[in-house]
Write a protein that binds this DNA or RNA. Structure first.
Lengths: 203, 203
DNA sequence: GTGACGATGTATCGGCGCGATACATCGGCC
DNA sequence: GGCCGATGTATCGCGCCGATACATCGTCAC
């Protein structure tokens, strides 16, 4: 899962660990916390040993005029290999087990721009199925075991159910968009003027 | 965290592993998936060795007329000890690190009925702070790095931001309720299965 | 000028919790 | 009578996290 995210990011440009973490935080910020170094560095090494990525460009591609890059500061820049690109394509379509709170969906979604409509639809519908299952589970608890639970627990279930219902609606909108051709949602809502740094969006 | 949940459940009635897992699924269903056996059984043993829980009631409390309980089917029933109850009280107030996607908040919330208002407020406000931080992070990404991200990534961020804003609102309602005295929200459950929006829940 | 401090950067360690798997018993269904 | 699914306990490998350590760089105060 993390491997997929790393391959996706390195496909755009070579990076070192610190950058990868920040980029990951910015791109997947909505679905999972920033990745831990305790995970990132061992994973990078594993992927390097497996051949998906490689350290620092073998050819002299670093511009000599960039003082920041030629600094003595220790940093290991990784780039994706041909094998890695293959692996990325395979994984993107594979879409593993992915339970409800699996961040895997978020990673896939983040790299949707690199996939085709059929793949997007399959992943979106898979996610919808999983969220619907969870939603049904919560509804069952609320309707069948409600008398056995205290008010706080019930409130928690209701909030969880609400979140599931919203996500299903969101997914169905995305699915409808994919089917009808328009690729992403060209956000018809709230065109936020350029000088506005306080862009609050509500729907 | 799991330990807290187990202690809370055993405080109501002794149980064996299988029951614990099902009960956990029903009570924390909204915030985390059902606990894995690969986690549950080692944890139970660890807690037994630590003295928080003990196997099967020491006194002969099993009715000899109950064939199901006297069956040869292997099952280990655990009960909470006095030490365990102490531990539970400590942990409930402690409220560990708890990052945004830490299920710890859900566990605490589930056992709110066993706490006092001050503890509830502290935990609710802690959670609110964490969600607000995440919300600000997402807003920053959306306003500062929006041009650098593709439409799908932006859509993901928007959905995440929306979820954060909703949770903050939910938390603030709960906090207001706690401050004003009424403990839980005593709303009339309202079993509306299809397309409900739960719009008007003002006091 | 120099010293403190925070951001940048790489790395390791212990441990929690997951998914897969194995194995055994029970009840019910055809 | 035999199959199957629910009930039950248990183990194993591993992904990922949080804490921690350590080193360099830029910058601002004093």
């Amino acid at each position: 899962m993390l491997e997929l995210a790393i391959l996706g990011l390195l496909q755009e440009t070579p990076m070192h660990g610190y950058e990868l973490r920040k980029e990951l935080g910015a791109k997947l910020g909505a679905f999972r916390a920033a990745i831990s170094y305790g995970t990132l560095y061992p994973t990078l090494r594993r992927m390097r040993d497996a051949g998906w990525i490689a350290e620092t460009p073998p050819a002299a591609s670093a511009g000599p005029l960039d003082s920041a890059l030629t600094s003595k500061r220790s940093r290991v820049v990784y780039r994706i290999t041909a094998e890695g690109k293959e692996r990325f394509a395979d994984r993107l379509c594979a879409a593993g087990p992915e339970t409800y709170d699996d961040p895997g969906f978020g990673v896939h979604f983040t790299f949707f721009a690199r996939t085709d409509t059929a793949t997007r639809l399959r992943i979106l519908e898979g996610r919808r199925r999983r969220v619907e299952e969870r939603r049904e589970g919560l509804r069952n608890v609320l309707s069948r075991a409600a008398s056995r639970l205290d008010a706080y627990t019930l409130e928690l279930q209701r909030h969880g159910l609400d979140a599931c219902e919203r996500e299903v609606r969101w997914l169905e909108e995305l699915i409808a968009n994919e089917r009808s051709g328009r690729p992403p949602s060209q956000q018809p809502t709230d065109p936020t003027p350029p000088g506005d740094h306080r862009g609050g969006r509500h729907q």
